[in-house]
């Protein structure tokens, strides 16, 4: 859970913790994730500092992908088993942005990751 004393989780750890399905980014499970954020409000993300963070969201549209790219989010987790639209998937592939889908709710997903040591963007 540490790398040069800086806490982080690999995307693979997040996948396991959230029992998530990888929709985009099967080849990126080694990706280090430094922080987490959870929001359905895209302007909250843009307020930062979300560089290097994983995003948990219940919002399921193409703006999630564009907002993530703009705000430096490194992976998107859709909660409650939501699956992305085809246009979201292709845009995420284009930008190399992993998308995972977890059966857990927003609250439970955040709690599980926090319990594993992942902290929020502050």
């Amino acid at each position: 859970m540490t790398r040069d004393k800086k806490p982080y989780m690999k995307l693979a750890d997040i996948k396991e913790t959230l029992r998530a399905e990888v929709i985009v980014g099967q080849d990126k499970l080694d990706l280090p994730v430094e922080t987490g954020c959870a929001s359905d409000l895209m302007s909250d993300l843009l307020r930062g500092p979300t560089n290097g963070a994983v995003l948990l969201t219940g919002l399921n549209n193409i703006q999630v992908i564009r907002t993530s790219v703009i705000s430096g989010v490194v992976a998107v987790i859709l909660i409650r088993d939501k699956k992305p639209m085809p246009e979201m998937t292709s845009l995420a592939v284009e930008h190399g942005l992993p998308i995972l889908s977890t059966p857990f709710t927003m609250f439970s997903s955040c709690g599980r990751l926090f319990n594993k040591g992942l902290r929020g963007v502050e």
């Binding site: 560089n51 549209n61 193409i62 703006q63 564009r66 907002t67 790219v69 703009i70 930008h95």
Partner: peptide
């Protein structure tokens, strides 16, 4: 045009990255 909304800003981000500006400034 919500399908395209944000596309221009991503292009701007790519241009600034290619020039090599500081990541915080780019953000």
């Amino acid at each position: 045009d919500f399908m395209k909304a944000g596309d221009v800003s991503i292009q701007i981000q790519s241009i600034l990255k290619a020039i090599g500006f500081d990541p915080d400034l780019i953000r």
